[in-house]
């Protein structure tokens, strides 16, 4: 059993591999630190599986109420953000999904179900939740669960507050997500899963509503969304026909179709100008660095390495 569980382990330290190789497993047997690590996540995984099976097979509402009493939702958020094992993060995402779906069915008090003290804490809960995007996503199941959970939290955040209070928080949330996506683009080898998740979340979020119409919501998030989408849309590193390119194209078309034309063109041009200005500033800085003595030393270092 232990060997089986070790064989399906997906640790971040494995780099872009989706699981350890036989050599890794043999090396792990000799490494006491990794061995103890495996033990910890194995027990933890089974403990979470117990909770999941209880929710799925026993009375959902009362089981979730007991989980709240034990402070489980906050732990789930913590493990989903930071645990090194993919499987732990995935089971925590699923358990959060169970809590959210139960709230939707029972129309219960979400703040209470998550063990929060005041409604404002939901904003922090959501901001913390987006840290999950910083960890490798690997599989469709994880991607879909993160998107569903994020959509639920964004919707809850909007409906918990008054319209005028919710708007800056929503814009800030999308700005943060957009930033995570831009940061992920720095490494083409690992960015794909993260970008696909973020772009599909953006696309799905257009169904959310603030106030009377969905267009108001699109207006709110158009800037932060374009900050990322303009880059993925124009970046030649991502192949034509890939999910990233296709979804980017669809997002731009949706925004263009549903928003006021002057508003969309104005926002698009502002975002484009700001990105081009940043690129220009970076190039100027690089040229200035090259012209200095420090830059000269760097060039000499490069040449000597060749």
């Amino acid at each position: 059993m232990k060997n089986f569980l070790q064989a399906i382990q997906l640790l971040d330290e494995e780099g872009d591999d989706h699981g350890p190789t036989q050599e890794d497993l043999e090396a792990a047997d000799d490494d006491p630190e990794r061995q103890s690590n495996n033990k910890q996540w194995t027990l933890l995984y089974h403990a979470f599986s117990c909770v999941e099976k209880l929710i799925e097979n026993q009375d959902k509402k009362s089981t979730i109420a007991m989980c709240t009493e034990l402070g489980l939702p906050k732990h789930l958020l913590l493990f989903a953000q930071y645990h090194q094992s993919y499987w732990i993060r995935l089971v925590c995402q699923r358990l959060l999904g169970h809590i959210f779906s139960s709230q939707r069915e029972s129309k219960g008090d979400l703040i209470m179900m998550l063990g929060l003290d005041v409604p404002e804490q939901l904003v922090h809960f959501t901001y913390d939740f987006i840290n999950c995007l910083n960890k490798p996503i690997y599989q469709e199941e994880m991607k879909n669960q993160i998107i569903k959970n994020l959509i639920f939290l964004a919707q809850a955040m909007i409906s918990k507050q008054q319209e005028d209070e919710a708007t800056p928080e929503v814009t800030k949330l999308f700005r943060k997500i957009s930033y995570i996506g831009r940061k992920a683009m720095l490494d083409i080898r690992t960015s794909q899963d993260c970008l696909e998740t973020i772009l599909q979340f953006f696309q799905a979020s257009f169904a959310l509503k603030v106030g009377e119409s969905g267009t108001d919501f699109m207006k709110l998030v158009c800037g932060p969304v374009l900050e990322l989408v303009y880059r993925t849309y124009t970046d030649e590193q991502y192949a034509k026909g890939s999910i990233i390119k296709d979804v980017s194209l669809e997002i731009v078309e949706l925004l263009q179709r549903d928003l006021d034309k002057p508003f969309f063109i104005d926002t698009y041009n502002k975002v484009k100008a700001s990105i081009l200005q940043k690129r220009l500033d970076r190039r100027v800085k690089q040229k200035q660095l090259v012209a200095t003595e420090e830059g000269l030393a760097m060039r000499q270092n490069k040449r000597s390495r060749k």
Partner: peptide
């Protein structure tokens, strides 16, 4: 739940 939470998860 107590068993799973108190002995392992917490």
């Amino acid at each position: 739940l107590n068993s799973a939470c108190q002995e392992v998860i917490n």
